[in-house]
């Protein structure tokens, strides 16, 4: 467990950044903390701040968050053999706490256990609960700081979101077809943003990148478990936390 302490640094940092950015985006302190309690996913929460504005249909916010969370489908599929022995309630908590970091920590533990690969619930919840509490507390601290500052522009807090998204995007840069996907999505997003307008640039831009990826892929089949491990490796190797 002591090994997990350095991992808590990025959680703390991004939790505080989320808190400050949320206040700058006009959320109340209560809703800012509520987001960290109810969602517990960095990327989802930042996407919520970006997309949720007055008058934007709820479905577009929901769709964007769903899409950004897609990699979690692969994580939870890959964890199947390690957590199958949990009871239903234990599984519920396991899924709720399944961040990028949690996945990496659990996979690492399974590797260490060797043959059985079954990770105990105590281990799983031990790391997960600490990360969850740290995330919420740091969100509150960041939010308090944000609400003390009269003009968020003073510290550039109004511009945390685009910079954050740039770092997340670049964390994926070693992936297959990264450049083609990013360019296709960006070009379509900018065009749609200028013509049809928000929030359509997100869904249509994303669709363009996804179509490009599907067209570029080879025919045939792949194993689901291997795909997830590969995705997790890339997303955690860049020292990027997307809890």
């Amino acid at each position: 467990m002591r090994a997990s302490v350095p991992i808590l640094v990025p959680i703390s940092f991004f939790g505080m950044m989320f808190g400050a950015a949320a206040i700058a985006a006009g959320q109340t302190l209560a809703n800012t903390i509520w987001a960290s309690i109810a969602i517990f996913a960095g990327a989802s929460q930042f996407v919520f701040l970006e997309v949720y504005r007055a008058g934007v249909p709820v479905w577009s916010v929901a769709l964007a968050v769903f899409a950004v969370n897609f990699r979690h489908l692969l994580y939870s599929a890959a964890l199947a053999s390690k957590i199958r022995h949990y009871g239903p309630l234990q599984k519920f908590f396991a899924f709720f706490l399944l961040t990028d970091l949690q996945f990496a920590v659990v996979e690492n533990q399974a590797l260490r256990l060797g043959k059985s690969g079954r990770v105990s619930f105590a281990f799983y919840i031990g790391f997960g609960a600490i990360a969850y509490v740290v995330w919420i507390v740091m969100t509150a601290i960041g939010g308090l700081f944000g609400s003390l500052i009269e003009n968020p522009r003073t510290f550039g807090l109004d511009f945390i979101l685009p910079v954050y998204f740039a770092t997340i995007l670049m964390g994926f840069r070693k992936r297959d077809r990264f450049l083609a996907i990013a360019i296709a999505s960006t070009v379509v997003a900018v065009l749609v943003h200028r013509t049809i307008g928000a929030p359509w640039h997100i869904s249509l831009g994303a669709l363009a990148g996804i179509a490009v990826a599907a067209l570029m892929a080879k025919n045939g089949e792949v194993e689901t478990e291997g795909a997830a491990e590969e995705a997790a490796l890339e997303s955690t190797s860049g020292k990027v936390d997307r809890s």
């Binding site: 990327a43 950004v68 897609f70 990699r71 997340i168 994926f172 994303a206 669709l207 996804i210 990826a213």
Partner: peptide
């Protein structure tokens, strides 16, 4: 490939 592309595609926008 399409599933893997989703986060990159969305965040790019």
């Amino acid at each position: 490939a399409a599933l893997e592309a989703v986060p990159v595609a969305v965040i790019s926008t």
